[in-house]
């Protein structure tokens, strides 16, 4: 099948879209494999290949992610770019491929962006403080199955940044809320629940992400379908953190 890729190329402060026609693709290829084909061709032609982040290629590491025709990770729901197969496109389609764009995600090169801001949000409080060796028996605290399931659903976040890329506010609240919810609904996470919400949101804001206004663009873009209700939970925890005396 044929596709025309209009790809963002950037090596300094600014970049531009460059058009690459590809005419011998297989519908069984993944989107990233189409980029591989293009890159091998560019290398042989003596040009620099398109830089893009990718690693596991099975939708779990969260390293890949590009905007394809203005949609994070492309048109298929709940799918990362590496698992998006060309059979979901029409022969002859023209696809615009751009990096994630947000102030706290500066472009490094071509389609590669710097997402280290996510690590800093986690470092600010996205953990349970339990040094190795200090844990009680795993069955010491039973966890109701629905709570465990809710925690898992939120913990499935792969930190790819699609939520930020899709958000009209450039907000990382879905990412932040996913971690706060994962840890906040488990009994183990209760002691730090409110300070965690406070510290993570403070770091989120300090990093220059926009504020969430419940626009709802993030969940449909999320390859793991992290629900919006996680943000409601984070909101409630943050309000509680600043209004009750329980956890200062």
């Amino acid at each position: 099948m044929k596709l025309t890729l209009r790809i963002w190329r950037q090596s300094g402060a600014t970049g531009r879209l460059v058009e690459y026609p590809l005419d011998d693709l297989s519908p069984d290829m993944s989107f990233l494999e189409a980029l591989d084909v293009l890159n091998e061709r560019l290398v042989l032609a003596g040009e620099e290949p398109v830089a893009f982040d990718h690693d596991c290629r099975e939708g779990i590491c969260g390293m890949c992610g590009v905007m394809i025709n203005g949609v994070a990770h492309g048109p298929q729901k709940a799918t990362t770019a590496c698992q998006l197969h060309l059979r979901h496109f029409e022969d002859g389609d023209v696809l615009t491929v751009e990096p994630w764009r947000a102030e706290p995600f500066p472009v490094v090169r071509d389609l590669v962006v710097d997402r280290s801001a996510f690590d800093r949000i986690v470092a600010a409080g996205g953990y349970i403080s339990v040094p190795a060796g200090s844990a009680p028996d795993a069955h010491a605290t039973p966890v109701p199955k629905p709570d465990a399931d809710t925690a898992f659903e939120a913990a499935a976040c792969i930190g790819c940044g699609a939520c930020v890329a899709a958000c009209p506010n450039g907000s990382a609240m879905l990412f932040t809320a996913a971690k706060a919810t994962h840890l906040g609904v488990l009994p183990q996470g209760q002691p730090e629940r409110y300070s965690r919400a406070r510290d993570m949101v403070a770091e989120h804001d300090a990093l220059g992400f926009g504020g969430c206004t419940n626009a709802g663009e993030c969940t449909p873009a999320c390859p793991k379908g992290i629900p919006l209700i996680t943000i409601a939970r984070l909101n409630a925890d943050l309000l509680r953190a600043h209004t009750s005396r329980s956890d200062r």
């Binding site: 963002w8 203005g70 949609v71 615009t96 102030e103 450039g170 969940t219």
Partner: peptide
């Protein structure tokens, strides 16, 4: 104002779901 600073500007943008 904050959102204006934070959000990226795409050449090609499509709104996915937001009502």
């Amino acid at each position: 104002a904050r959102a204006r600073r934070a959000r990226g500007r795409y050449r090609h943008r499509r709104v996915v779901q937001g009502s």
